[in-house]
Amino acid sequence: MTDALSKQFDAEGVSFSMKDRLMMIEVDNPFATAVITPHGASVLSFIPKQGASAGQDLLWVSDVAIYDGQKPVRGGIPICWPWFGKSDEEGLPAHGFVRNRVWHLDSAHSHDNGTTELVLTCDSDDVTRKVWPHDFHLSLRIEIGEKLSLTLTTHNLNGYDLSFTEAFHTYFAVSNSTGVEVQGMASALLLDKLTNAVPVRQQGSVHIDPPLDNVYLDQTSPVSFDDVRANRRIVIEKNHSQSSVVWNPGAEGVKAFSDMGDDAWQTMLCVESGNVLDNAVVVPSESKHAISMTIFAEKLS
């Protein structure tokens, strides 16, 4: 199968392999290397070749992640859609169902400037309609260059408005999560999902002292945080995203995840871009909505 795909998609620097039961799409261009799996259309690695993060992955994937196709890979950038968090209906998976679907690789293209573009798609069918009774076409465009850019486009194929929530559930690799200061959330409405405290407006930066599970509504500006030991600042730019989420399970919470080591919380931090809770998206019939996110690193000194 991987040989056939290599012939079908002859983009320079794009190859295919298997890890356990999951296919891996490997990209190697002048700017970076990257790994994507069609299972959930999840980017699992992005390692720039130059600049502040040269040779260092911006993304974190668990050392004990599972690649058997029964669940999403723990780490990288899972796609949460058409709901974020717990479902309103009992028995349905958290964060929607497309992160555990096998997406179709529509195209792989090498641009003249050296960047690589992949497009993966996911469509409604009899299986998805049993979980979520609506018709849709999803397209994820991934651009790999000096920066990593993702654009998720939802096409509403129904004869009525479609409402959903969504997020790029990005796991960032950090030297030490404790003490990180996340910038860009000031004035956003903070919902603390651990304490369920009365929502307040965020004042200043977000100090990371795990565990935490914070949702920031009405948050549209770029977000950044410093990975001091790695001498890099990770920057997140986004468009058509009204929400951000910051999550780390901490020393006790991580024990609830069989696909995370007990110390994993120290070297990862989820800073997610999306439209969640009260920032839900409504797309008119036969119309489209696109959310995009770009991540990159800058030197601290």
Rank of each mutant, 00 (worst) to 15 (best):
Y67Q: 00
Y67L: 09
G69K: 05
G69W: 04
K71A: 14
P72W: 00
P72M: 12
V73Y: 07
V73M: 11
I77W: 02
P78H: 05
I79H: 06
I79P: 00
I79N: 10
I79V: 14
C80V: 13
C80G: 07
W81C: 02
P82M: 02
W83N: 00
G85E: 02
S87I: 09
S87Y: 08
P93A: 05
P93W: 09
P93Q: 08
H95Q: 02
G96E: 04
V98I: 13
V98D: 05
R99S: 10
N100H: 14
N100V: 01
R101C: 12
R101Q: 03
V102T: 09
V102G: 00
V102H: 05
W103E: 04
D106W: 05
D106I: 07
D106E: 15
S107D: 15
S107N: 13
S107C: 11
S110R: 08
D112L: 08
D112N: 06
N113I: 10
G114D: 05
T115L: 00
E117V: 15
E117L: 06
E117G: 02
L118Y: 08
L118R: 07
V119Q: 09
L120T: 07
L120Q: 05
T121C: 06
D123S: 13
D123Q: 15
D125T: 05
D125E: 09
D126L: 13
T128G: 04
T128P: 04
T128V: 04
T128H: 01
R129E: 12
K130D: 07
V131H: 14
W132A: 06
W132S: 04
P133R: 02
D135M: 09
L138S: 08
L138E: 01
S139C: 11
S139Y: 01
S139L: 07
S139R: 15
L140E: 05
